[in-house]
Nucleic acid binder design. Structure first.
Lengths: 338, 338
DNA sequence: GTTTGTTTCTTAATCGTTTTCGTACTTTAA
DNA sequence: TTAAAGTACGAAAACGATTAAGAAACAAAC
């Protein structure tokens, strides 16, 4: 290992001088500075992160919580997109990303304990069960935390604008001439669902459209079964909708399967719209009409805010950042005459 | 911060004793040990990772290289699945996962330099350009490296068994009665493609089936355009195949779109098979016949081997580990009479 | 000529661990 | 009784960096 000492000996100065030279302190002459910097470069010197962290209490390391019961959270396009955005931005600002977990040698440790152990300077909670006491301990701790799509009183939150997104989607569908619009929403427990559902009702209201109770249904996110059942029921109604909005692009696939099986054509006989803007949604024929959530931006913004609250804790507010979704006009919502 | 010193004072012993007690050294009496352990527990003590790493040169931290030109590598189901498997297993064995990158304050550093800076004990290369000199420097360095789906002389490699997978797939299709089988393969540059293509030829040979040159075509992985074009051309041949194998499940979607547009039915009029076993592949109707790559296992095995070569460098061989794919019998390959 | 100030560098302490070596005390063996 | 061996702990150095305080050299001011 080439350390400060190595450079100091080569240059005939003390390690203190080397340290100060490399950190651009002003009490070292320009001449010595450049001499030291040159030898450091030549020797391929890099500071030892552990030593520096120990002394300065700064690790330049951010913990990311990414946990799901199924253990497969990482493979969901939305979450992995956010993670990627976070990674790119954090790295750009000189921070590294480490996953938070609960294993410590043979015994368990809490998320919070893990963060202290590793000296994480900030934490991003991308995917977790927010009711877990361990997660709450983390949010209530003294380490800056940013949450994704979840609002907690003392954490900065970055959320996709589900209210605006749903409004845009409904208004676009309305603009295509549809008046009978059904909405299969996801699990009611989540913030995301609440926002979208409220926005759906409000927008329909604003447009002066009635929402029959039988047009509002539930199906799970990221699964097809529920959507299949609900789609079949919707299409068998005496007065079926002309357009169905699904919980997300994945569950939409289930509805799409049923529609095709029933011999109906999209969008001629029935229109459908999703939510998420997954890669897959733009590969299918016809391309789906959906709201693309800008996961890159969500993650990036989360990283920026988090780092800001690390580096400038005084001037950084705890706030709720909202990222706009983008309407993707596929071909799955057709034009009809009303 | 509660440190060894805190505990030492509370217990009226030296920090050396505390350290040795907590590390279960034998020259501390059982009585003192338990007394110290109890107070440590009570005070919520956790060692400082930086201090420990500095002294012992062990960081219990593994670097993961996950880089793609597009910057979206993380959102591809195969890679993120591998990463997840790696994460789960590494954590189980007490190691943390940190992403490798090239940003250091204002200047660039190489991957290898980053690893030394952070004291990574091992490196997993999940997704990277293996021709990049930076990546090669990493593979040729002194830190243990495991590569995924790539073989390098002094790194342990974990690879999906594309040879067996393709053989299983072709034999299954043959078993369903097909004799005219076309294969649209991915970019020829990759190891993966080479293995699959060779295995395709070999298996067809073994089965005594001819492979007309016009049945072998190229299209990009993870995209639909190429597959669309090739599918159309294949179906317009004078003597079209009865079954088409695609580069992967994603590109298959393109072929599937074309087939549906042409008014053909799957699998009645034409059979198709993919590769990967993505979540999506099992949501579509009919469910796809494909080879599921066990990403969880690939990542898990990579972590195990890597940690083994960290902890027992002497007894660990550099080897090539092969993970079997699993044939998923969907309904997209039909039974026909030959 | 003494004081004061500046510039440039060094000394030494420190962060929280681990670990080598030494020491005091107890036990066993001759 | 005394030497040897064993047990249980402490003192201090070390890992590689940062930083407060001090010192040497020289210039400027009275």
């Amino acid at each position: 290992m080439v350390s400060l000492k190595t450079i100091a000996e080569k240059c005939g100065v003390s390690t203190a001088t080397v340290s100060k030279a490399l950190n651009n302190q002003k009490d070292i002459s320009e001449e010595t500075k450049s001499r030291i910097k040159k030898t450091a470069e030549a020797l391929g010197y890099f500071p030892n992160a552990a030593a520096r962290a120990l002394k300065t209490n700064r690790s330049y390391n951010i913990g990311v919580l990414f946990e799901e019961e199924a253990g497969s959270g990482l493979t969901h396009e939305y979450f992995s997109g956010v993670l990627n955005g976070l990674k790119v931005q954090a790295e750009k600002q000189g921070y590294d990303i480490t996953f938070i977990n609960t294993c410590f040698e043979n015994r368990k440790m809490s998320y919070y304990e893990h963060c202290r152990y590793r000296n994480f300077e900030g934490v991003a909670i991308v995917c977790a069960d927010f009711n877990d006491p361990d997660v709450m301990e983390l949010m209530n701790g003294t380490i800056p935390v940013v949450t994704i799509d979840y609002v907690h009183h003392n954490c900065t939150a970055v959320c996709s604008n589900n209210i605006q997104g749903m409004e845009d989607l409904v208004k676009y569908i309305y603009g295509q001439g549809h008046r009978k619009i059904a909405y299969i929403h996801g699990q009611k427990a989540s913030y995301v669902t609440k926002d979208r559902l409220a926005s759906f009702y409000r927008t329909m209201d604003e447009l002066g459209l009635a929402v029959p109770d039988e047009y509002i249904r539930t199906a799970d996110y990221l699964e097809t079964k529920g959507a299949e059942i609900q789609t079949r029921e919707l299409l068998n109604l005496k007065n079926p909708p002309t357009c169905i909005i699904y919980p997300d692009d994945t569950s939409l696939i289930g509805g799409r399967n049923v529609i095709i099986e029933m011999g109906l054509r999209i969008p001629k006989d029935i229109s459908i719209a999703g939510y998420d803007g997954t890669r897959m949604s733009q590969l299918l024929h016809p391309r789906l009409t959906t709201i693309r959530q800008d996961t890159e931006l969500i993650g990036g913004e989360a990283a920026k805010r988090l780092i800001s609250s690390i580096e400038r804790p005084r001037t950084t507010l705890i706030e709720r950042v909202v990222i706009e979704g983008i309407l993707v006009q596929g071909q799955s919502v057709g034009r009809i005459n009303c």
